[in-house]
Amino acid sequence: MKRIIKAFFDNEILSYLFFGAATTLVSILSRLVIYHISHQEILATVLANLIGILFAFLTNDTIVFKQERRNWPTRLAKFFLARLSTLGLDVLLTYIIVTTFPDLIGQFVEYNIDRVNVVETILAQILIIVLNYIFSKIYIFKRSN
């Protein structure tokens, strides 16, 4: 069993997908808890993204892309900038879909704003996972030759 688990995590794509899912789960749960407490969708989006960024960097840097310790501050800065761009997209989608035009999704969920927020959160996270992989693979975690 240990061999299977090791082989799974030695595969970069499988490992990225696993930790991408874990990061998404951390972000979604954080966002929903913060939203439930505050009922502030933008605040919940921003804080959940910051929590997700830190979790994702730690797992991507050490486990997924198996980077050496040197130059980690540079990678963290690049990672943070890339994730800030997807945070901006997430906030924009939240503002447009939940805050400004909740009826876009609301018509399918009995105009319940909490459900609108959940649906938008899930859709946004799918888009963000794809964009974050592209940024990580091409821009941040390069293999040394």
Rank of each mutant, 00 (worst) to 15 (best):
G20H: 01
Q107R: 09
R69C: 04
L127R: 04
D61G: 02
T59L: 08
L17V: 08
S15M: 06
T121Q: 06
I105D: 00
I140M: 02
F101R: 13
A48Y: 00
K137A: 14
L17T: 03
L89M: 11
D10Q: 14
S136A: 15
N112M: 02
T121A: 07
V98H: 08
V91A: 05
F65E: 05
N60V: 05
A77W: 12
N132S: 11
L47M: 11
F135Q: 13
N11K: 04
K6W: 04
I63K: 08
S136K: 11
V130G: 13
V98A: 10
V64R: 01
A56Y: 01
I113Y: 10
I122H: 07
F8I: 03
F79N: 01
S27Y: 12
I140C: 00
S30K: 00
L25N: 04
Q67M: 12
E120V: 08
R69F: 10
L17W: 03
L32A: 10
A56I: 03
L29K: 06
Q40V: 11
L104Q: 11
I129N: 10
I129F: 10
I51G: 08
Q67L: 05
G20M: 00
F101K: 12
Y35T: 00
I28D: 05
A77N: 14
T23S: 09
L89W: 10
L123Y: 11
R75G: 02
K142I: 02
R70T: 14
L123T: 07
F141R: 03
S27W: 12
L32N: 10
N71D: 15
T45I: 03
Q125E: 13
F18D: 03
Y111D: 10
I129C: 13
Y111L: 12
R31I: 04
F9P: 04
T62A: 15
V130Y: 09
I134R: 08
G106R: 02
L47C: 08
F80D: 03
L14Q: 07
E12Q: 15
N71C: 14
T99I: 13
N71S: 15
I113G: 08
A56T: 05
I34W: 00
N60S: 07
Q107F: 15
N11A: 05
L123E: 11
F8H: 07
L58T: 14
V33H: 01
S38L: 04
Y139I: 15
L58H: 14
T94P: 02
Y139M: 14
P102F: 00
D90A: 15
I140A: 00
I96G: 01
F108V: 06
G52D: 04
F108C: 06
L43W: 11
V33P: 02
N117Y: 11
V119Q: 08
I134D: 07
L58A: 12
N60D: 05
I28G: 08
T86L: 00
A22P: 07
A7F: 12
T86W: 03
I126K: 05
V109Y: 02
L17I: 06
V119E: 03
E41A: 09
L76K: 07
T121E: 03
K6Q: 13
Q107T: 10
I97Q: 06
I53V: 08
T99S: 15
N49G: 11
V33W: 01
D90P: 09
R69I: 09
L14Y: 09
R31W: 02
